[in-house]
Design a protein around this nucleic acid. Structure first.
Lengths: 222, 222
DNA sequence: CATTTCCTTACGGAAAACCATAAGCACAAA
DNA sequence: TTTGTGCTTATGGTTTTCCGTAAGGAAATG
């Protein structure tokens, strides 16, 4: 036995095709595809109304924008809404992104069932993932399997994330101080913010604020 | 009639598969694949020694690094060496990258025969590209067809990319000036670099250098 | 040949970031 | 109570970034 009804969500038709091949190997006949997150969610809703829920959803994370207006713009958005409305649906993420923090946050926030890195042998791993998930076992590509181990090294608190986000957002340290004062976020003095950033720079071995933002962005923390 | 012997170069096995499907539609039987640029070049050399040159090469631009040491690290490197040693071999680039400047430089430097954007209907366009190239006509995906028309102001050049990259790398503007002087990259005075960054900030509507780096990173330009 | 235009470079002042030091305060241990 | 510790905040000085202005040179225009 295997999954019966599967939805593939990826903007690249090529990838869709590749995934299709993998599913064919499992002799899954009932396969749907979507190139936009909005379409995908519609299909999921429709399936639910017809009492024919999907057994499995395989989705990418990043979707290129084009002329179409989209309500759900990213795979993460799609996952969020699906796991909220139909939490029992298994989801496999199939993405180029191999940042541990990203994987970790998807697992923690949405309890995704598998994360497969599109890579040299992505389709082989995808195949393994489908098998695992069918057996109710979580699957992670080897490159990102470390996402589960605690590794508190990378851990930084919400406050720091917010701080760096605002930096990346173009605010000066002075403006961030003002913003935090309005939000009743503490610490919020310019001096404290300077100190905090200094600590983060040391922690991430960054030469300056620009470098820090670049590093943290690469890690997928913001 | 159609191409007889084709080489596909892409690190993602999925994409390789997708391209394979397209080629099958043309009933091309003699298809080779490579997941590393080094392997690809070896195959090309071997084919030449055996007097059985490839009629067509379809290649990606970016290749993820893994444990293997590679001499040729990018698709551009591969194109460069192939067009130098076997300039008559048609090359189709099939890439996610849709920056006009990139496309333009590949056309000008190496006279590539087609540039197809991996996208929602990438495989359809790839199919068109193969047909065009077989008829000795150049092909560009619609998104990048403007690459041929003279410079549009929105474009960002290689120099700017390098500049922002170094910023993201943690160098101060003064250090970048020094670096560029060593590299004989011009302009390289601190003043020019300031001015250039100012222009980029305006162009990308960034408040400051941090913001600029964040924006450009989000756009995937660096 | 003179003039215009474009680009690189230089310079100086203002703003922001960076850095060290110290004061103020809460809280827990002695 | 006193002491020590840890955190926020304050202050001042140095460096870097930001921004306007202008000088110098090369290529293009007339």
């Amino acid at each position: 036995m295997m999954f019966k009804k599967v939805l593939i969500v990826d903007d690249h038709d090529d990838i869709n095709n590749g995934v299709l091949n993998v599913l064919h190997d499992f002799e899954i006949k009932n396969i749907y595809m979507a190139q936009y997150c909005d379409d995908a969610f519609l299909k999921v809703k429709k399936a639910n109304l017809e009492n024919e829920n999907f057994d499995l959803i395989i989705t990418d994370l990043s979707f290129k924008k084009d002329y179409r207006e989209c309500k759900i713009e990213s795979g993460e958005g799609l996952i969020a809404i699906i796991k909220e409305e139909y939490p029992e649906t298994p989801i496999i993420v199939y993405s180029m992104d191999n940042r541990l923090q990203k994987v970790r946050s998807l697992i923690n926030k949405y309890q995704i069932d598998a994360y497969v890195c599109k890579d040299r042998n992505g389709s082989v791993e995808l195949s393994q993932a489908i098998k695992s998930v069918f057996e109710k076992k979580q699957f992670l590509s080897p490159q990102v399997s470390k996402a589960l181990s605690p590794k508190s090294d990378l851990e930084i608190e919400e406050y720091d994330i917010e701080l760096i986000k605002q930096l990346a957002n173009g605010l000066s340290q002075d403006e961030i101080s003002g913003l935090f004062k309005n939000n009743n976020t503490t610490p919020n003095s310019l001096s404290s913010i300077e100190k905090r950033l200094n600590r983060l720079r040391i922690q991430f071995k960054a030469n300056n604020a620009i470098h820090l933002v670049a590093i943290v962005k690469d890690l997928g923390l913001i």
